[in-house]
């Protein structure tokens, strides 16, 4: 169970982590400045198990992987949004940041709600509102990457062709 941190539509990569902080690739260093301009209380207040809840087109903008890495580094459990910008979606999967697509939860969950997420089933429980939501299932090959903990771990053990089989 963790607390929800709520963000709006079209949250861009500069808002997740401004370009000037991207001189490091250390997840913990990046996490110190994650959301610093739009939710400065986040970096200090976030606890392991907390959940980021965004709107539509989450993570639009730059291709910088620093954005999902900064979120992962902050110990948030996952991101829930109604939709994702394409590069952010790929990057999050590739680096092993769990992301769920669930418009219902994205609309309904409010800042501070107590939320529990089952990443395997995609079930999201909002204890504050006493509601349950079901996230869209991820495509098979994306699940293969996600369950390996990211594309790097996947490739250590497998040939890339196995993604398609």
């Amino acid at each position: 169970m963790g607390k929800a941190w709520k963000f709006g539509d079209n949250l861009n990569t500069d808002e997740i982590i401004p370009g000037r902080f991207n001189i490091t690739i250390d997840p913990l260093e990046l996490a110190k400045n994650v959301f610093c301009e739009i939710k400065p209380e986040y970096a200090k207040g976030v606890r392991p198990g907390d959940v980021i809840v965004g709107g539509g087109n989450f993570g639009c903008g730059s291709s910088r992987e620093h954005a999902p890495i900064a979120i992962k580094g902050s110990q948030a459990k996952c991101v829930i949004a109604s939709s994702y910008a394409r590069i952010f979606f790929r990057n999050a999967i590739n680096i092993g940041l769990p992301i769920l697509e669930c418009p219902e939860a994205a609309n309904d969950v409010e800042e501070g709600d107590e939320v529990d997420v089952d990443l395997t089933s995609g079930q999201i429980i909002n204890a504050t509102k006493n509601k349950t939501y079901q996230a869209h299932p991820l495509p098979d090959f994306v699940l293969k990457i996600a369950s390996a903990g990211g594309i790097v771990s996947f490739l250590k053990e497998h040939d890339i062709q196995e993604l398609m089989s």
């Binding site: 291709s63 910088r64 992987e65 999902p68 590069i87 790929r90 990057n91 590739n94 680096i95 090959f141 990211g150 594309i151 790097v152 490739l155 890339i160 993604l163 398609m164």
Partner: peptide
């Protein structure tokens, strides 16, 4: 098209991208 750094490394190693 644009990709994150990790996928670039994957392409360095495999020559491929999905």
């Amino acid at each position: 098209s644009g990709f994150g750094s990790t996928e670039i490394a994957v392409a360095w190693v495999t020559g491929k991208c999905w």
